[in-house]
Design a protein around this nucleic acid. Structure first.
Lengths: 343, 343
DNA sequence: CGATTAAATGCAATCGATTGCGCACAATTC
DNA sequence: GAATTGTGCGCAATCGATTGCATTTAATCG
């Protein structure tokens, strides 16, 4: 059984003394083919281990049964969970999934979207990169009629359905929790990027403060790329400038871990001297000492929701469905890093 | 520009008043086509934004320019780094990469390999799942002449080239380091699975002990699935049974973090009372308190090496190349968790 | 200058599956 | 029993690109 002698419908046809047309129709359960013939064809197909040539099918039908996913990186619990959910949903429907990573790089994202279009995927599901500014690569897909869905990091400007979590609410609740724990000067780490998630997280922080009669102190707002190293530096800056603070709420788990390291290095106790909270519920937030309060982005439900929305689009191609926006409720997780008052 | 009106070589042909054959040959730089015609064709192609239909090409040529990767999960720094390396290498050569995950599940691995074969990938690169026992799915690929390469978690029995790290050496050096730090009763967490990496890691541990006149105490060997929870339980078991130990070397970073949590809960100090070392250099090993000693599996060089080996196979299809085995040297990283003697 | 050879391109089949149209033959109707 | 309707299947074109085998035209030779 070498690569060459893959079984085709012609082999089945020869074996049974009928035509390839009939075999094709039998396999596709065409009503005009007799039950007897269908039976014979299916038997023969099993026997010689027939598998349709996906390229021939794709070429003929103009549909590839391939869907593309574009995410910043797979190496993030949140994204890999979502991908898993989508894959399961897709595989059940006999679609294959191509995962591509933008690495939060605008150029790479453009390339990768174009590559997917060239590869003639039947649809694309996207979570935007942090540095994405233009959207022409997505407009192109829309113009070509390729079904498109955004999740988590979305472009509000485009007429595209999306699934997000309520970042505002999560952020509000976490900030409120810290205030109730007695923290008063809560610093906030965020990204300078104008993506929805970061804007919303900031908004939640601000509204919580205002609700409790506190105000946003610009000195306590630090913008960075939110990586581990950035967290360290941000704390360093705060300490250096002598800006007093008794808590930090970061829009990312990574930078809050960096912050934790830097604080410990300076002999500052957590949560007694400074409370810490992150965002994302990365697995390692449970491993730190003390464990970190954070926000779980409900990746599993999000994966299911995105997949469902996407396949609705796919199955109703041509028909213009109304733009949907699904907002999921995240889970705010309070751990020891924000327990100023002992329970 | 809808999905339908994608440019084809016929469009170019019409535009120039020549045949599709000529266009095809011009694009493929056939020697019998005049320089002038080639130029015209390339211009026209650019102008109408021609992109070859990959399905038509694949159907005609019998080669898909698709390669499959099978790994346990993308959500592991090690694997995602390797994938990234492979992708870069492949994309430069105009190949696309399909990532599939076995989730360490034998059944899923078989399915996924068969799906790749059915999808007519031009080759497959594999890191085995933990629970993989049979190898028929790979034999099938070999029989069909599909280029195959293993990395990290490999099947020694198959006549297939592979890239691994020297797990034995890394394990030996880490154990030796712990002994030199003064630890004497070093427990070892490992997997009951018979994959190369686990066998080698145990061998390194054992030989190091023996080299230093110590012997392996069966009470100190604990087998599990090596997840976080397993690490907790394993420590619990040791403490419960009253087995004395002053260090743990685990074949996985995850279980050693679990161990750390359980030890701390019992007021046991690290590294003073018990030294800890893991394996894998997951990013979070740097975040724990104290940071964990571990082994870096040099994922970047491994990705490059695998890709290189693989494309050699691919480019010499038909020709039987000798089976290669590349062994890379891992980096042993000593952090605070094993620093019994203060520096 | 007619004949030979080389250069440039066209024709038509092919890869494997799908599908509109048409042709037999059987079943049904009046 | 002739006419109508159905049933089951085959013919041939098609999707887009490639390629062996002509064929045409230009260049070279004796």
């Amino acid at each position: 059984m070498s690569k060459k002698d893959k079984a085709t419908i012609h082999d089945i046809a020869n074996k049974l003394g009928i035509t390839a047309s009939t075999v094709s129709r039998a396999l596709n359960n065409h009503p005009r083919i007799s039950a007897r013939t269908k039976e014979l064809v299916h038997e023969a197909a099993k026997e010689i281990n027939y598998k349709p040539n996906s390229f021939a099918v794709a070429l003929r039908n103009g549909r590839s049964r391939l869907i593309g996913i574009v995410i910043p990186t797979v190496n993030r619990n949140f994204f890999s969970s979502i991908v898993r959910g989508i894959e399961e949903y897709a595989n059940e429907r006999d679609y294959r999934v191509v995962i591509t990573q933008s690495y939060d790089n605008y150029e790479k994202e453009k390339q990768t979207v174009n590559a997917l279009i060239d590869a003639q995927v039947d649809g694309i599901m996207v979570s935007l990169g942090k540095t994405t500014t233009g959207l022409t690569h997505f407009k192109k897909a829309i113009d070509m009629g390729i079904p498109l869905v955004f999740f988590d990091r979305v472009a509000e400007e485009l007429p595209v359905s999306q699934v997000v979590i309520d970042d505002f609410q999560a952020s509000f609740l976490m900030t409120e929790h810290m205030i109730r724990q007695g923290y008063r000067r809560i610093a906030h780490f965020n990204s300078p990027m104008k993506i929805n998630i970061f804007k919303e997280r900031f908004r939640g922080y601000r509204e919580a403060l205002e609700t409790y009669g506190l105000s946003v102190d610009p000195n306590l707002l630090i913008y960075s790329n939110l990586q581990l190293e950035d967290g360290r530096e941000s704390v360093h800056t705060l300490l250096n400038k002598g800006i007093s603070f008794d808590a930090i709420f970061s829009a990312s788990d990574y930078s809050i871990v960096g912050a934790m390291q830097e604080l410990k290095k300076n002999g500052i106790r957590i949560p007694e001297d400074v409370g810490l909270a992150g965002f994302g519920n990365e697995p390692f937030t449970e491993f730190t000492d003390p464990p970190l309060s954070t926000v779980d982005q409900v990746s599993i439900p999000m994966g299911q929701s995105v997949a469902k929305m996407f396949f609705e689009l796919l199955e109703n191609e041509g028909i213009t469905l109304p733009i949907q926006k699904v907002v999921l409720t995240p889970k705010v997780i309070f751990r020891k890093s924000t327990q100023k008052t002992s329970p």
